[in-house]
Nucleic acid binder design. Structure first.
Lengths: 244, 244
DNA sequence: CGTCGACTTGACTCGGCTCAATGCGAGTGG
DNA sequence: CCACTCGCATTGAGCCGAGTCAAGTCGACG
């Protein structure tokens, strides 16, 4: 806690805004913040690894964390990308089961962490946190169910469109002529998010680019036409290989 | 509460064993049971429908409930089948969001229900319930993630094998020469569980039957060889259409 | 300037979906 | 007790979306 200097107020505001601490008064928030350890995670570093027993909860203050799950056969599924204000590790920590995914920084990041013992003590002291946790975990379960539904009924093109739409709205930065996903995003990442191969993602993106829906470069995607991307996601529109 | 007669002790034991009420003392359990309304749900009846605003939580005491999610385009995904001792509706009720799936009785069933207002009052009074709820919802999120992984990386044959394996171990009744899934289970149901079509399920099951792994009839499946079914689930073994 | 990782593109293959026809078992009502 | 019927299940033929593999090209960075 000592030596944080100017960063303290910033951390305070993150804690204040986090859904997990919603409804708590200023004094409680102070106590909670006092129990946190700030950490830096370099690009490529892991916050926790799939299979590790749960040791801490992390509130992201800066940077971007990729949550990924790898199957026994080595194939990877991207669960999501988390940014400032979001919490990583909560399903594992609150359930006291091993992390079911790996959290890795895709750029230099900063987080606040709470040891699992502290989390449990805090929950005991502030029961409101438990009900907040149910909502957070529940929302995650809902999101999974929706993805499951989409994966089993929709085409790859639709799923890629949905993934992009979500990224652009959650982590979009306005640039001239569109909205850019605000972190490095490879074709491989998009493939892992949408349950496709990087080849199919590449082809699809190029077709869309020719039609002006997106503009893309090396590890970078700009959404140019939200409406048409939404239509692609709904399956109303298809651009993926029509005969000449 | 009056007029339950002999059923009371039975209900009590269900409440006692439910994960949601774990760690509560007898007096608390009595209070909780007193707040419950027992209900009968006829075969085909709905306990709640996808999209309804959450009104109650249900603990199943008898019968079998199918949880299904339908996509806008009408295709259905089976989330799972719940039996005695399991709880339906908890993700929606604790989050206070509309039910994201429909719960329908596939045979005449009995449940204990708690109105959402009562649930919230009980949680307020017994904070332990909130932490139990986090675990239940978290386990559901985990299960979804695992299915998502399987759906995006494994073959249809593997997924059907997994679905059957789970059903047989969760709701299996020993019969001579194997374990039978203890409720009516159509090919369509298996398809919705594994993300396949009923045609593929039918074909797959027939191949397995010829090899003695399962035995199946109208809305009925008996697992004869657990080991080989497990191998099929892991992808170590394949029976699905080898050339003569 | 060389190397390496990200990306593109083409050719080929095939698992599993679609559609359509038919079979079969279990209730139901005469 | 039989015939009807309805919903579940089987089976075949055909096709196509998307995965796989193999060569590339391009751009960044040391």
């Amino acid at each position: 806690m000592a030596g944080l200097g100017l960063r303290m107020p910033t951390n305070h505001s993150f804690v204040q805004r986090a859904k997990l601490f919603e409804g708590l008064d200023a004094a409680s928030l102070d106590t909670i913040l006092a129990a946190a350890t700030p950490r830096r995670v370099p690009k490529g570093g892991a916050l926790f690894e799939q299979g590790d027993k749960p040791c801490w909860l992390a509130l992201i203050t800066e940077g971007r964390i990729k949550i990924g799950h790898v199957a026994p056969d080595g194939r990877t599924l991207a669960v999501g990308f988390l940014g400032p204000g979001e919490i990583a590790g909560c399903t594992a920590v609150f359930q006291r089961v091993p992390y079911l995914a790996t959290a890795r920084a895709i750029e230099d990041s900063g987080v606040l962490t709470w040891w699992i013992e502290e989390v449990e003590a805090l929950v005991e002291r502030y029961p409101k946190m438990a009900t907040n946790a149910v909502r957070i975990v529940g929302a995650r379960a809902d999101a999974m169910l929706r993805r499951l539904q989409q994966l089993s009924t929709e085409s790859v093109e639709q799923r890629i469109a949905r993934a992009l739409l979500r990224l652009a709205s959650e982590a979009g930065r306005p640039v001239k002529g569109g909205v850019q996903v605000d972190f490095v995003l490879s074709r491989q990442d998009l493939a892992e998010l949408s349950g496709a191969t990087l080849y199919t993602v590449s082809r699809t993106l190029n077709v869309w680019q020719k039609d002006g829906v997106v503009e893309c470069g090396r590890q970078r995607v700009v959404v140019r036409d939200f409406d048409r991307l939404a239509q692609l996601a709904e399956g109303v529109l298809t651009l993926a290989a029509q005969p000449p």
